[in-house]
Design a binder for these strands. Structure first.
Lengths: 249, 249
DNA sequence: CGGACTTTGTGCATGCGTTCACAAATGGCT
DNA sequence: AGCCATTTGTGAACGCATGCACAAAGTCCG
């Protein structure tokens, strides 16, 4: 175990963080949840094979993902659940609490606010905002609702690090601008709008319509494939099938 | 023009669908929304440059994405908005309506049910399910709630093509199994659980906790980077900074 | 104590997706 | 009619992520 050794040690550990592929980060979060569940069930050790199966990924990929955060496994044995949980939490920055603000207390906003201390601890929702005068002042999920005009001030004051936008599309960009002005550098956007932000700000988008449309694409692809198959079959006995014939199986 | 020649002819048009990268499909959905908005504003023609800017992507990528669905642009001019909308809708399979079932009428389920005919038409929510006896029979967003024991029967009967899981984590797998048994081949999963499904079924996952944790990672990365910068500065005048010193700016 | 077995960590090849850069095509202008 | 400006469509290079396959490392058992 090296002493302090300055140069390489600390920055190396820090810069490694930059090298983790985005996709791997998302998977680490999944591993973390699985590991937490195991930990609660008293499992103390796990192999890459078991963990990867539980997380639904390839075991080699899992090991590579874990290697991004360091070598915490024991060859011939596996990983210690507790150690892995700690290391992943550290890598994901979950050792510090991140205050979350939710803007737009419609159906979705309600759902988010009531999550309370978000799934898998560590994300206290500490501020809510809306335009509707009827909502302001009334607590939702124990948290009072402020007017969106106060976003900038409140976010700056409470050092909000993550802003969640759950407003109707037309309001999203204006809300986003205020969040940014209030010092928020990470935004989770549920509004179906492409947000314009300075490149110091990180945006992640959850778009229901897109998700459904991607699924729709797969339904269509499947139907087409079934049709192609049917035509291949039909060709064998004379090709009697109409081009737009629908195949139900 | 080849006669039957097996492979190429009709299947070519169909197989193209299979060749569209998943990532491109998701972007097509975004383009579609932007285009619809333009169409409503009376814009009839658009260049790849304009459209890509509005969608927040590189113009070359946009053109390549559009090329996956065919050549519908005019060189020197651009694309006709209406044509593009039609073609994308066709590719995404939006010409047929896809009935959607939502399972789990908690906060999130409510939000989903009340979306009504989902953002950007074409996804009527036609069935709701929950376990809570108090909810059953009472309409939410105009749609009556059934018991989850009836999932299989109702889905089969109404030819539901997309199932949305918005239940607590422990219930998710069982619900999923019933949806699959009812003939649902596409599932949108909001529960933080890795679903096990036959590989004929397509699952897309929306995981709030993962999204937040990825953002958290970025916050941490940024803080670390600031720290590294600060240490580099400090080193110049003697390196007095403690290793775990936090840098607030 | 040594050998066999297990499991990690990773170099390498493969494949996919993104980006560049340019030829081909089209409309408008003189 | 011919040329120029513009913009598409795509071949090719690049880069990243995935998956394989194996050496290194460690445990367990006889």
């Amino acid at each position: 175990m090296p002493a302090i050794e300055d140069g390489p040690s600390v920055p190396a550990a820090r810069e490694r963080a930059r090298a983790i592929p985005e996709a791997a980060v998302a998977r680490l979060a999944v591993y973390l949840r699985v590991l937490s569940a195991m930990s609660e069930q008293g499992v103390s050790s796990v192999s890459s094979e078991e963990l990867s199966a539980a997380a639904g990924v390839n075991s080699a990929k899992l090991r590579k993902d874990l290697s991004y955060i360091g070598s915490y496994g024991t060859r011939g044995v596996g990983y210690e659940v507790g150690v892995l949980v700690d290391q992943i939490e550290r890598t994901l920055g979950l050792t510090r609490k991140h205050s979350v603000a939710v803007v737009g207390i419609g159906n979705l906003g309600h759902a988010l606010a009531n999550y309370g201390g978000f799934p898998g601890r560590g994300f206290p929702v500490t501020a809510l905002f809306d335009v509707d005068p009827d909502l302001i002042g009334i607590p939702v999920g124990g948290i009072p609702v402020h007017h969106i005009d106060d976003i900038t001030a409140v976010c700056a004051e409470r050092e909000i690090s993550i802003g969640v936008i759950a407003t109707p599309p037309p309001a999203a960009q204006a809300v986003c601008d205020r969040l940014v002005q209030g010092g928020v550098e990470c935004i989770l956007n549920f509004a179906p709008v492409v947000l314009q932000v300075p490149d110091t700000v990180e945006v992640r988008k959850v778009d229901l319509a897109v998700e459904l449309q991607v699924l729709s694409f797969h339904v269509a692809r499947r139907a087409d494939q079934a049709q192609v198959d049917a035509m291949a079959d039909a060709r064998e006995d004379g090709d009697r099938t109409g081009i737009d014939g629908m195949v139900v199986r």
